[in-house]
Amino acid sequence: MSFETLRALLQGWAGAGYLPGSLTYGFLVNALLAGLVIGPVLGGLGTLVVTKRLAFFSEAVGHAALTGVAIGILVGEPYTGPYGSLFAYCLLFALLVNFMRNRTGLTSDTLIGVFLSVSLALGASLLLILATRVNIHILENVLFGSVLTVDDRDLTILLVVALGVTALTLPLFNRLLLASFNPALATVRGVPVKAMDYLFILLVAVVTVASVKIIGAILVGALLVIPAAAARVVSTSLRGFFFLSIAFATLSAIAGILLPVELTLPVPSGGAIILASGLLFLGATLSRLALRRTNA
């Protein structure tokens, strides 16, 4: 089934009143499809990000996308989707951080802090140069996400990335976790620890870049962290942690895309998605506190 057919089907259901009326607009159906594809992937991968204590890293890769966008536009890529530079810069950023982490003896947070600051400084400088060439406000869509700009090309990239990341992450889930728990034990169990470390940061970087259009460069890292953090607060097993994180991330994506349009709120999709996940986190924390008080 092509995107066109799927879009027509959903628009038809919206027109018949089975779905929210705002889905009669094709652009919003595109955004919803993007959210439904990327939400579960970010939620699932987020459990590994939280478990491996890489929340700051995923945020940093998201922020690196800002510089990737600036470089892309500078070298002549379309400002609505400079994917070549985005992928290249974010992958380079992630690889460099991991490479230096193994060699400088610095703690991860210090090293990420250094790279993040330098990368942001570079991005901000390039954006100032770009301000004379393009309408800088157009970049807000890339920085904070926009439901208006997702097209079939973006959906195809999202789908390919989501399928690829899922196909790699699920069979390697245990190995990715074990590599961070105890490298010596992981080695005895046949896990190539360094390869797993590099693979994971590459997965995070690729997913981040693919999600930039819908969530925005600045906020994409948050959807890797907040739903998983909320799920961690209320779960008692790995099964609950994983599936609740997927549910929270997907729900946040759907709510963040549909609610601003349905309620005519002037909020970018990325902001709305992260606010929705923030509310879920608040709810999860309060329910845990209430449960503790009941048990006390």
Binding site: T47, L170, P171, F173, N174, L177, L178, F181, L185, R189, S237, L238, R239, F241, F242, F243
Partner: peptide, 14 residues
């Protein structure tokens, strides 16, 4: 879950 992570290929969350 810990034993599943350490001893099996199938994702431990299953």
């Amino acid at each position: 879950d810990v034993l599943a992570i350490l001893c099996q290929q199938r994702p431990a969350f299953l």
